[in-house]
Amino acid sequence: MVVGLGVGVARGRHDGVDTIWGLGFAVIAVVGLLVSGSGWLVTAMTVLWGVRLAVHIQLRNGRRPEDPRYVALMDRATGNPHWYAFRKVYLLQGVIMWFVSWPVQAAQYETSTGVLTWVGVAVWLVGLGFESVGDRQLSRFKADPANQGKIMDRGLWRYTRHPNYFGDACVWWGLYLVACQHWIGALTVLSPLVMTLFLTRGTGKALTERAMRDRPGFAEYVARTSGFFPLPPKREGTR
Rank of each mutant, 00 (worst) to 15 (best):
M97L: 15
I184P: 00
W83A: 15
S139L: 04
S191Y: 00
W172L: 11
P65M: 01
P65L: 01
Q108N: 11
G114S: 10
V100G: 05
W83I: 13
Q181D: 11
V100C: 08
S132H: 09
A72Q: 12
W118T: 13
R63I: 00
T188A: 07
A179K: 00
D135S: 06
G127Y: 08
T111D: 06
E131R: 07
R154N: 07
P103E: 10
T78N: 11
R158H: 14
F166K: 04
W173L: 06
W157P: 12
G79E: 09
W49S: 03
P65Q: 05
N147M: 05
V119F: 14
N164K: 08
D135A: 06
D168L: 09
Q137H: 11
A169Y: 04
G94P: 04
A122C: 13
L125K: 06
G127F: 03
V171S: 04
Q181Y: 06
V119Y: 13
R76S: 15
P103T: 12
Q108T: 12
E66S: 04
N61V: 02
G174S: 07
C180P: 04
R52K: 14
N80H: 10
Y90P: 02
I151A: 05
L177R: 02
E110L: 13
Y159P: 12
P81Y: 01
W183E: 10
S191C: 06
S132N: 03
Q108A: 15
M152G: 08
Y109K: 12
R87Y: 11
G174L: 00
S101T: 14
Q181L: 00
M74Y: 07
Y165L: 14
Y176R: 00
I151W: 06
V95Y: 10
T113S: 15
L92A: 12
H56S: 03
L59S: 10
R87M: 07
L53M: 12
W49Q: 05
V51E: 05
S139Y: 09
I184R: 02
G120N: 09
L190V: 01
G155Y: 14
W124D: 09
E66C: 01
A85D: 10
E131D: 11
A72C: 03
Q93E: 08
W173F: 14
R154K: 14
